[in-house]
């Protein structure tokens, strides 16, 4: 009886020491989960998730305070990736979330723009250049398509333009089971 007790206590001590040691040895700084979630989010900073940016949403997901299906720009693919990372079930978009749109960029109609700088203040990634009373321009390559600049514009001169596929961004499609018939291609030829 005594021996058994002793053995168990010694074991408990050793294992406890190992656990304690590894907790120190393998300690990770910060909250890597938030960063991992943030890495999956599309960084549009659009706020459609009701959080003021991707990082706050990531923090909320990590804390278990937000669902994983609140990011329309990430699409279902994004939900799938989040579900995989967090070991959750895939969850379709809710009724209240905005629909996923094709990736777009904002364009300013430069003849209508009055140079009020309101959009410059709204842009979360500083992708709009211009100064007071001067026409503004959106740097297309930096625009995330968040649409946050549209509402503040007093003259409604910003429109969203879907990004067109070009030769460098063109993707091979998923092979279809049936072979497209040659006749199909003939139509294009003539």
């Amino acid at each position: 009886m005594l021996i058994a007790l002793l053995v168990m206590s010694v074991l408990a001590l050793i294992l406890g020491a190992v656990l304690g040691f590894s907790a120190l040895k393998f300690h990770v700084e910060g909250n890597p989960l938030v960063d991992k979630i943030d890495a999956i989010l599309p960084q549009t900073q659009c706020g459609q998730c009701s959080f003021p940016g991707c990082k706050p949403y990531a923090t909320a997901i990590a804390a278990g305070e937000a669902d994983i299906n609140r990011c329309p720009p990430g699409g279902e693919e994004g939900i799938r990736k989040l579900a995989e990372l967090l070991n959750l079930e895939f969850k379709p978009f809710g009724e209240d979330t905005a629909a996923t749109k094709p990736k777009s960029v904002a364009v300013i109609d430069e003849y209508t723009c009055i140079g009020c700088t309101l959009c410059i203040q709204a842009c979360p990634v500083d992708a709009i250049s211009g100064a007071a009373k001067q026409m503004h321009t959106i740097i297309e390559s930096e625009c995330t398509g968040c649409e946050l600049c549209i509402a503040p514009c007093p003259v409604d001169c910003i429109i969203m333009v879907p990004i067109q596929e070009n030769i460098t961004t063109w993707k091979f499609r998923y092979p279809s089971a049936s072979n497209p018939s040659a006749a199909n291609n003939m139509a294009k030829l003539s």
Partner: peptide
């Protein structure tokens, strides 16, 4: 199928790159 997979991977990488830039710019903002 391989071409499809390759171009999807390239597209994902492009998207990831632009997301990284957006994150950086947002943090700077």
């Amino acid at each position: 199928y391989y071409r499809f997979a390759k171009s999807e991977i390239w597209a994902n990488e492009r998207e990831k790159d632009s997301a990284d830039i957006a994150r950086e710019r947002h943090e700077f903002h």
